[in-house]
Design a protein around this nucleic acid. Structure first.
Length: 781
DNA sequence: GGAAGCCGGGG
DNA sequence: GTGTACGGCTTCC
């Protein structure tokens, strides 16, 4: 019997006759399946172990086998012993014990991943074996596996179960659980009823019956799952919602895992994929779906429940539905399926493991093939930060016809070009990085990291080619998703190598990569300048220079030629990415704005880098004013921009501003949890609300307006939407904040914060012309 | 300037 | 379960 399966998650069970590896997935036909594999055993390696250790281990019943092997480790082949044991869960103990005697290798690899590496499985496989009904599982098909083979990847539609709970603010009792299920392009809704115990039992029943691949909801990681687990425990309900009947488990006080399914919090998905100022379900639904939650006062949920149960149930189901549609809208499942394909992992592993594990997935397999020892992940963390990319200084001003060139996969290309790898790092290497580290040339020993990256790069080119040749939109999207995933994975390699203590590397390697990159980009900038071109800016892998032609056609032609010419010289590919007309910066690195005029499909798009305001104490007027001024500048109207900035500031000073645009909001927790509660504006606002007779519940969001910022601490007054605000905002304070924001732009034209505020020039320096002085004034980094 | 603290979502 | 884990901003030292 055979079944073609996309792997969703993998784990193992202890059964009477030993350990069983369980591979969960979805078949091409859309059925849920579990494949059971018997007889795979955990193992690790000892490097040059002393006899006393071997003796002790050989007397131990847990140890199944010991075998002499040779492994390359720290620059040479060494005598090692492969130790096979019978219980994966005991491995950490033996690892700790053995570490007292000698170095231990590959003893910290999760058992199911060890299985996947050893069978070199990808994310889609063929199960070969017999169907054996087994009432342990909720899956439709259960197979006892004889073998597992890799097959071409496919993306089955997954079944997604979204839920939401409503529970008492007073005692935590769960009132209802609403859900929405995505299957075959349709959404089905429902809720569970009964007293709290029945309700939880019914919830478990629904999940077991529906057997979803993915469980979601909004902030379920931090709230709903926690509450449900607590209440179930109190009431003695078995929360066996795993595909094997196991309970969900919290990992590191963070996310949750359950055997056979993926638990993906829609809120976290939104955080990962988008950068939004407001992340509440209401705000995100409005933003992505154009509709909001139902009108229920959840601070008074107990009363609402007493008053109108049907309404609360509807509200609850609606929230579950919104979370589901958000998850679908951002396409995170599809994206991670593509990443699963390129990392050769089950979906759950790629979604819920760190990026270093993605790199492990390719690197450990390759290391095993080449008999290279796999070191343990070091314990040290966050040490010795390496120097990053080169950032070219940016002189303040407005520029025209800026060509932007970008290195294609710069860091991966550098790693390949200079054969940078832990296997090539060597004192007698002939490739010397600017930091002094030496690497063997490709001819003497090809590094395994460069090899993997080279394959990935070729893979990406092939996928891009297939994408271009695609006959249908669907096919095109399929390949586009995969090529993007390869790109993400390639960049992850650098990110992991640059982190100070990844198992396969050390800071010398990360530092060498960036130093080669800095050297390369500096050289190219130097070349461009020696041709008389003005290089305006550059950051890590991009170069911005002024086109010698003040028109579109000439600039496109010139940029294309330059990219081609430099690429040929460097063994690295420079791509002509875009033309900005105009381009503006006030002179700080990583901060600029511009309008794209080429390529055609992005024409008119405004790009803003580094100026985004995402401070927790920001108010709407700040970002609105900034945006308006930028738009004027990009229209080429500098005078207009300056007068607009002055006008906005003086209007705020005079109090001619919509009060809503000055509101600042934040959550307030239990006052006791603050070290210095009285100094915090949110606490002050909450206390004043209570005085006015409003009910305060920890966790509530409060809004306020600053009414006096002159003293040692800010005086604020709560703002209640829809009600008149009976105080006078501290307009001087708001004018100052706005002027601070806008002056960063207008300073380039000689108008500083003081002048925006008072209309008077404060410094004797006037605007342009005095470049040298301007540079010292504005070149803050 | 780096480490520690806190928020954000949810009822 | 061979894994101990957010990301960004602010305040503190």
């Amino acid at each position: 019997m055979e079944e073609e399966v996309r792997l969703i998650s993998a784990s193992y069970s202890r059964e009477e006759d030993g350990v069983v590896v369980e591979l969960y997935g979805k078949t091409k036909e859309g059925k849920s399946i579990v494949g059971r594999y018997h007889g795979f055993l955990p193992y690790f390696y000892l490097v040059e172990p002393p006899a006393v250790l071997l003796e002790k281990l050989s007397e131990d019943e847990e140890i199944k086998n010991m075998e002499d092997v040779e492994l390359w480790y720290r620059g040479k082949m060494r005598k090692c012993v492969k130790v096979t044991l019978s219980s994966p869960w005991k491995t950490p103990n033996y690892r700790r014990f053995a570490s007292e005697f000698c170095e231990v290798l590959a003893a910290d690899i999760p058992f199911h991943q060890r299985f996947i590496y050893d069978f070199d499985l990808g994310s889609c496989v063929k199960f070969v074996g017999d169907y054996k009904p087994n009432d342990k599982y909720t899956a439709e098909i259960v197979m006892e596996l004889e073998s597992v083979e890799n097959i071409e990847d496919f993306k089955p539609e997954l079944k997604i179960f979204s839920f939401d709970i409503e529970n008492s603010m007073k005692d935590g009792t769960i009132f209802t659980i609403g859900y929405a299920i995505w299957e075959n392009g349709e959404i089905k809704e429902g809720h569970v009823e009964g007293d709290e115990k029945e309700l939880l039992e019914n919830f478990v029943k629904v999940i077991r019956k529906e057997d979803p691949d993915v469980i979601t909801g909004y902030n379920i990681d931090g709230y709903d799952l926690e509450v449900i687990t607590d209440r179930a425990k109190k009431l003695g309900v078995e929360l066996n919602i795993g595909r094997d009947g196991s309970k969900p488990q919290r990992i590191g006080g963070q996310f949750w895992r359950v055997h056979g399914r993926v638990i993906e919090d829609a809120w976290w998905a939104v955080k990962k994929e988008l950068r939004l100022k407001q992340e509440s379900l209401e705000a995100v639904s409005q933003e992505l779906l154009g509709e909001g939650k139902m009108d229920v006062d959840r601070v008074n949920i107990d009363e609402e429940w007493e008053k109108d149960r049907d309404k609360v149930i509807k509200y609850c189901v609606k929230d579950a539905e919104l979370a589901l549609r958000i998850l679908l809208k951002i396409g995170i499942i599809g994206k991670y399926m593509d990443l699963a394909t390129v990392t050769k992992f089950p979906l759950d592993d790629v979604m819920h493991s760190g990026t270093s594990t993605w790199v492990d997935s390719l690197l450990i397999r390759e290391a095993d093939r080449r008999k290279i020892g796999v070191p343990l992940q070091g314990q040290e963390r966050k040490r010795g930060k390496i120097e990053g990319g080169y950032v070219h200084s940016l002189e303040p001003g407005l520029y025209h016809w800026i060509c932007v060139l970008d290195f294609k996969s710069m860091y991966p290309s550098i790693i390949i070009k200079y054969n940078i790898c832990f296997t090539t790092l060597s004192e007698d290497g002939d490739i010397v990085s600017p930091t002094g580290a030496k690497f063997l040339s490709k001819e003497r020993r090809e590094g395994i990291i460069p090899k993997i990256l080279k394959d990935l790069m070729a893979k990406r080119d092939e996928l891009k080619r297939k994408m271009k040749e695609a006959a249908t939109e669907e096919e095109r999207n399929y390949y586009d998703g995969l090529q993007k995933a390869v790109k993400i994975l390639m960049n992850t390699f650098y990110g992991v190598l640059a982190s100070s203590f990844y198992r396969f590397t050390d800071p010398r390697i990360g530092a060498s990569i960036t130093s080669f990159a800095r050297e390369t980009i500096r050289k190219i900038i130097g070349n461009l300048e020696s041709r008389g071109l003005k290089v305006v800016y550059g950051d890590t892998d991009s170069i911005f220079f002024e086109s010698p032609h003040q028109n579109l056609d000439g600039s496109v032609k010139f940029g294309t030629e330059m990219a081609k010419e430099i690429s040929e010289k460097e063994e690295l590919i420079l791509e002509f990415e875009k033309i900005l007309e105009p381009f503006f910066s006030h002179g700080a690195k990583k901060r600029y704005v511009g309008r794209i005029v080429w390529p055609e499909d992005k024409r008119g798009e405004m790009i803003v880098r580094g100026y985004e305001i995402r401070r927790t104490d920001s108010f709407d007027l700040q970002s609105e004013a900034q945006k308006m001024v930028f738009e004027k500048i990009l229209d080429g109207d500098v005078e207009g921009a300056i007068s607009l900035a002055k006008e906005i500031v003086s209007k705020v000073r005079r109090g001619e501003v919509e009060i809503e645009k000055l509101v600042i909001s934040r959550t307030v927790r239990d006052f006791k949890r603050y070290k210095n509660p009285n100094s915090m504006a949110n606490v002050q606002a909450a206390k004043k609300l209570m005085k006015k007779g409003f009910k305060f519940i920890p966790g509530m969001k409060v809004s306020w307006i600053v009414v006096n910022a002159r003293g040692s601490k800010q005086d604020v007054e709560p703002y209640i939407p829809g009600k008149e605000f009976p105080y006078r905002p501290d307009f001087q304070y708001y004018a100052r904040r706005i002027a601070e924001t806008l002056a960063r732009i207008t300073e380039v034209f000689g108008i500083d914060q003081e002048e925006l505020l008072t209309g008077k020039k404060q410094s004797s320096l006037s605007a342009f012309g005095e470049k040298k002085k301007m540079k010292t004034l504005f070149d803050y980094e």
